[in-house]
């Protein structure tokens, strides 16, 4: 028995003696093959895992380093090291628009996220816990929206928002974000509300609580874990959104304030700085834009992973 490592202890203690000869013969042959194969595979696979890890870390580390380099250091070689560690580039990036873009993104999300969660949870709750005519229809009506590509509605959406006078306004983008986030929020929270026990709901009804009160004071607190997952999903999705703000948040005239969000602003800055030759600003800008997301991810790592992968459970 050349390779006992592959076999769990308990099984190893109990099995070998009792095995029929035929089975034992076949197995020891299989083991020897499995051993060399296992070792080669192990070195190979571990090497590959490490290689991929390097491929993730290297670009991000290079980006961080770039925010401390000077423009000529960046241009000289990919491997140059910053000679002077200071935060100048971050200050310049902030002044050149990143600060405003950051604020714009925050203003939009401060309204769009609570609104998405509130409206999504309300619709999901009613659809999950109440029977009425058209219940199924409204459920599929919401869920269907998640299957269509954004590009299908983009052109009319632009003219609709234009007609409402909401191009390049916060309220316009907020409403569109909420509408685009509803399908997944409703889908996810619908499933979640279904799993909650009915007994507490009934007890609240007997105590004379109104429907609205039951929702806000009984059901929402119980649904917190679900709300957290879908909330993280929406925060990341809306923070990282690019195509919608790029279409809807363009300055309408020279006097119109630049209300670009962070992603869109960075792309604009990248185009400008390409000519002006201040690359550290781009690198610092990217670092600023990535930092909050990475911090959120690392602190809620489990919820982020489960929230984002839950999006595929269809």
């Amino acid at each position: 028995m050349s390779n006992t490592r592959l076999i769990p202890d308990t099984a190893r203690d109990a099995v070998p003696v009792a095995l029929p000869p035929k089975g034992a013969g076949r197995r020891s042959g299989g083991d020897r093959r499995g051993d060399t194969e296992g070792r080669v595979l192990n070195v190979f696979s571990h090497g590959f895992l490490i290689l991929w890890a390097v491929m993730i870390v290297l670009p991000l580390f290079w980006l961080l380093l770039g925010s401390f380099k000077t423009d000529s250091e960046i241009g000289a070689s990919a491997w140059s090291w910053p000679s002077n560690w200071n935060f100048d580039a971050f200050g310049r990036a902030w002044d050149k628009g990143i600060g405003d873009y950051f604020a714009n993104t925050l203003i939009v999300l401060v309204f769009s996220i609570p609104l998405t969660m509130l409206l999504g949870a309300m619709a999901a709750y009613v659809l999950a816990r109440y029977e009425f005519r058209g219940n199924r229809f409204f459920y599929y009506f919401f869920v269907a929206g998640a299957m269509f590509p954004v590009y299908l509605g983009l052109v009319p959406l632009y003219f609709l928002v234009d007609m409402l006078g909401m191009l390049n306004t916060y309220q316009g983008l907020i409403l569109v974000y909420v509408a685009y986030s509803l399908p997944f929020t409703v889908f996810f929270m619908h499933a979640f509300f279904r799993t909650l026990p009915t007994a507490i709901h009934e007890a609240a009804v007997i105590d004379g609580a109104s429907h609205t009160r039951i929702f806000f004071q009984v059901m929402v607190p119980m649904a917190k874990p679900g709300l957290l997952s879908v909330g993280i999903f929406n925060v990341l999705g809306q923070w990282n959104q690019y195509i919608l703000p790029m279409t809807l948040m363009q300055q309408q005239s020279g006097f119109d304030k630049d209300r670009s969000v962070l992603t869109q602003g960075l792309v604009l800055l990248n185009q400008q700085q390409g000519y002006e030759g201040d690359l550290p600003v781009i690198f610092a800008g990217m670092t600023i834009a990535m930092l909050p997301v990475v911090v959120v991810y690392l602190s809620f790592q489990r919820q982020v992973q489960s929230g984002l992968t839950a999006g595929t459970l269809k």
Binding site: F141, F148, L157, A179, H211
Partner: peptide, 21 residues
């Protein structure tokens, strides 16, 4: 109650998503 809870989400979603589609 059901109407009250559904009307705003449905309206918003219909106007900004389904209608353009």
């Amino acid at each position: 109650f059901v109407t009250g809870f559904l009307i705003v989400p449905v309206a918003l979603y219909a106007v900004f998503m389904i209608w353009p589609y």
